[in-house]
């Protein structure tokens, strides 16, 4: 006899949740393609392919149902997030290796869906950044900045085998990100307003990059509307990043970029709506979510400004993932009838 009350349920399945997250990424990706060409699509394709193969193999070894756990979509979400975080002109084996490592060590070592302690995508990104710092800091210049416009065939060539293209073409295609550029130029004692006159800077953040951020913002708002994510995390993260950069900006606008620049450049928006909102590796209590978001905002700023790496999102997220069990146990909400 089964006693399975409640007999009725009303919930979206895990797959629906994950595929809505993928859907929400589409506007950002579309703008990415508009600004930088098809490179990102190739990366997403490679990442999806790798993740399905890797997961199938691991699930087969672990004698778990393959179809169910591939269709839950969580692997794809991690793979897509990694694919849009790395430079779109990185060689093909970068994304393949990153996805392989992030899925196996970030997810399946811990038991697969629901058990990972760390955000798989950010784990993959951090491993890649530490192992291949040079490749990971060569970003593509937006299409409309390159004099002789390169076509998508060149992008495929550079991803698949960079020796097929002349060095001049590659150099013409790549540069540092605005955050990286500011960092290196500041060490040369250039004032910020001069630095920001470089062509790679746009209206709010990096040229082209700010557009993508807006796309992610739209997707994030969709997720909020669909109640896939709660408002706590993005609000806490963005406001803490904004406030801390505002404080430094108001003290010394010559050395510290404006708060809006910090919010709109790098992975800030993607982080706010898609990365820290990963339920498995994040805190579950409302208060915990707020502390988590605030801490990541501060860490991102500290690493960007004082640390050795130009972008701090991946490290900040991994660092705060370490704190999650402690945050959860210390921020238990007041239970009905308890003091």
């Amino acid at each position: 006899m089964e006693n399975r009350s409640p007999y009725i349920v009303d919930a979206p399945s895990v797959s629906v949740i994950m595929f809505k997250v993928l859907l929400a990424l589409i506007p950002g990706i579309a703008l990415y393609v508009y600004a930088f060409g098809l490179g990102v699509i190739i990366n997403i394709f490679l990442a999806s392919f790798t993740v399905i193969l890797t997961e199938s193999a691991i699930l087969a070894i672990r004698k778990l149902p393959i179809k169910v756990f591939i269709l839950d979509g969580s692997g794809l979400v991690a793979a897509w997030l990694l694919a849009i975080s790395i430079p779109s002109i990185a060689p093909w084996w970068i994304i393949v290796l990153g996805t392989l490592l992030c899925i196996s060590f970030g997810k399946h070592v811990y038991g697969g869906l629901g058990y990972n302690l760390f955000n798989p995508a950010m784990l993959g990104y951090a491993i890649l950044l530490i192992s291949f710092p040079l490749i990971m800091s060569q970003w593509q210049i937006p299409n409309n900045l390159i004099e002789n416009n390169i076509d998508w065939l060149d992008q495929i060539k550079i991803i698949m085998n960079s020796s097929l293209l002349s060095k001049e073409t590659i150099d013409a295609m790549s540069s540092a990100t605005p955050l990286d550029y500011i960092k290196t130029q500041l060490t040369l004692h250039q004032p910020l307003n001069i630095i920001q006159q470089n062509k790679i800077f746009g209206f709010l953040g990096g040229k082209g990059l700010e557009l993508i951020s807006l796309g992610y913002l739209a997707g994030g708002l969709y997720l909020l509307k669909e109640k896939i994510i709660s408002w706590h995390l993005p609000v806490a993260f963005l406001s803490s990043l904004f406030l801390i950069s505002l404080i430094f900006y108001s003290i010394a606008p010559d050395t510290y970029a404006s708060p809006l620049f910090h919010v709109m450049s790098g992975g800030s928006i993607l982080c706010a709506f898609f990365i820290i909102t990963d339920p498995v590796s994040g805190p579950t209590t409302p208060k915990g979510k707020i502390y988590f978001g605030i801490a990541i905002g501060l860490l991102v700023f500290i690493i960007r400004i004082f640390g050795g790496y130009p972008e701090g999102v991946a490290f900040a997220v991994l660092l705060m993932n370490i704190f999650v069990p402690l945050i959860d146990s210390l921020t238990q909400p007041r239970i009905f009838g308890h003091k």
Partner: peptide
């Protein structure tokens, strides 16, 4: 790995 973020 995460603590390497503090480098510098």
């Amino acid at each position: 790995l995460a603590f390497m973020g503090f480098a510098g």
